[in-house]
Write a protein that binds this DNA or RNA. Sequence first.
DNA 1: CGTAGTCGATTACGTGTGTAAACGATGGAG
DNA 2: CTCCATCGTTTACACACGTAATCGACTACG
Lengths: 128, 128
Amino acid sequence: MAAKPDQPERISEAEQAVMEALWQRSPLTAQEVCETVCGERGWSLNTVKTLLSRLVAKQAVATEPDGKRFLYSPRIARSDYVGTESRRLVDRLFGGRAAPLFAHLAKSEALTPDDIAEIEALLKELKS
Amino acid sequence: MAAKPDQPERISEAEQAVMEALWQRSPLTAQEVCETVCGERGWSLNTVKTLLSRLVAKQAVATEPDGKRFLYSPRIARSDYVGTESRRLVDRLFGGRAAPLFAHLAKSEALTPDDIAEIEALLKELKS
DNA sequence: CGTAGTCGATTACGTGTGTAAACGATGGAG
DNA sequence: CTCCATCGTTTACACACGTAATCGACTACG
C-alpha cells in the first residue's frame, strides 16, 4: 500500500547551513557541526542542536548513537536538494523554462567570462 | 546624507502572486487583483487586501487614490525582483557561480532542446 | 434619512523560522 | 559516592506568512 510518499519537507535557510556542514563531512557530532558553522553565523551550540532536531524530524538527517551522544549524517543528497530548489525557482520566476533564467543571468552580467566558457564547453558536450 | 538605502524587504511567495498580477497590468484596484488571482489560489478578497497592504508597507507597490478606493501599481520592476531572487539562489546553492547552476540544469535534464538552442543563440550574441 | 454594500484598516490566529535558555539524564573526575 | 560537564529534549518567544473575519467610514439606493 505504498506507504505515503512522504514528500520531503522544506529545508529552511538556517537549516541549510547545517546541512552544508554535513554534506562536507559526515557523520558529525553537534559539537563538530557547531565548530563548522557557529563562527560564520554567530550561533550558539543550542541553536545548532535545535536545527539538527528539526532536520531529524524532517527526515533530512539521520542519527546514529555513539556512546552518550549522536552522530548526524545527511539523509538527502545535496544534489537532490539543489535540484528541487533550482526547479522551484525556475518554476516560480520563469514559468518553468530554463532559458529565460540563463538569459537573465547573461543580461544582468551575472555571468563571468569563465562561466561563459564553461557553459560553452557543457553545450558542446551536450550535443555530442 | 544618503537617506538609508532602505534595502528592499523580501517579498513572500503569496505576495509575489499579487505582484505578478500588477506586473501584468497596472494600476489595478484590489477587486481587479482579486479577479486575476483569487481563482487560481483560492483566496478571498480579504486575503488580497492584506497582501496588498503588506506590499505597500514593504514599499513594493504604490497607491494612488481614485475616489473612494485605491489603485495599486508596482514600485519595483519584475526584472529587478527576478534578478535578486536568481542571484540569491545562485549564491545560496552554487557559491555565486552561474555555470554550476547551468551544469546542474543540464544534467538533470531540465533543459529542453529548445532551451539549449536558445542558450546557444544567446551565447553567440554575447560573444559578438 | 436610514440602511446595505463596499473600501481600506485593524485585529486574529495557526504555523514556520531564527534563536536560544532551561531541564533532566548520565558518565567521568576526584 | 558526589558533583560537574555535556548530551539530547523540552520549552520559549518574537517575528514572518498565509489566510481571513471584523470594524469604522462612506456612499448610493430607496
